[in-house]
């Protein structure tokens, strides 16, 4: 039974190939490359962040991909990557998880918000704003979501790789205070 499945897994990529052909054909130079790691999974690498919204708009209007599963922020050394996990509803075994990947420079981590296209992204964009400082431009409400209200000014963005816990500093301060008290 397992063997049979493996066969179908490698053989049946019709739907994914069709989306790939559409995306490459219609968007052309906006897309760097399209990867299909396995059945029902796709990675679309967007070339420039300015054209990213057009890609999402195309996916929405032409392919009916309207479900935002999540938005992942990623700190890869000198730049950020933002991954939009979109999902197309389908019939049985037909849904395709499309991940749109965009790179942002760390010096200017701004990206167009997709809330006007896909309102379901509202919380995920706020979360990334909290955790990475990635600013979704045009987002209606950028108050801290998961972090405390007064966090952003001083605390930094905890999921960045260069963020360090203030634990050590606090411990030292505490020791100093205790020392003085005694």
């Amino acid at each position: 039974m397992r063997e049979m499945e493996i066969e179908t897994e490698t053989g049946n990529l019709e739907k994914e190939e069709r989306i790939k052909a559409e995306v490459v054909g219609k968007l052309g130079d906006k897309v760097e490359k399209v990867e299909i790691p396995r059945e029902r999974r796709m990675f679309i690498y967007v070339k420039r962040k300015e054209s990213f919204k057009d890609v999402v708009k195309f996916l929405k209007d032409w392919l009916g991909i309207i479900h935002v599963s999540a938005i992942t922020g990623l700190d890869v050394g000198d730049k950020f990557e933002v991954l939009y996990h979109l999902f197309s509803y389908g019939k049985e075994k037909e849904g395709v998880e499309v991940t749109v990947k965009v790179s942002l420079p760390k010096t200017d981590p701004k990206i167009d918000s997709i809330v006007d296209l896909l309102p379901g992204a509202v919380l995920y964009e706020r979360e990334n704003h909290d955790m990475f400082g990635i600013v979704p431009e045009g987002h209606p409400d950028l108050r801290p979501l998961l972090l405390p209200d007064d966090w952003a000014e001083t605390g930094g963005h905890p999921l960045r790789k260069d963020w360090v816990e203030e634990k050590e500093k606090e411990k030292e301060k505490e020791k100093e205070k205790e020392g003085r008290g005694e």
């Binding site: 007064d150 605390g155 203030e166 634990k167």
Partner: peptide, 19 residues
Amino acid sequence: VAILDTKDGNERKVLDMDY
């Protein structure tokens, strides 16, 4: 994903378990 926070006077503090 993160850390407990409170207001202690005017100073913002990250409270860890040890603290």
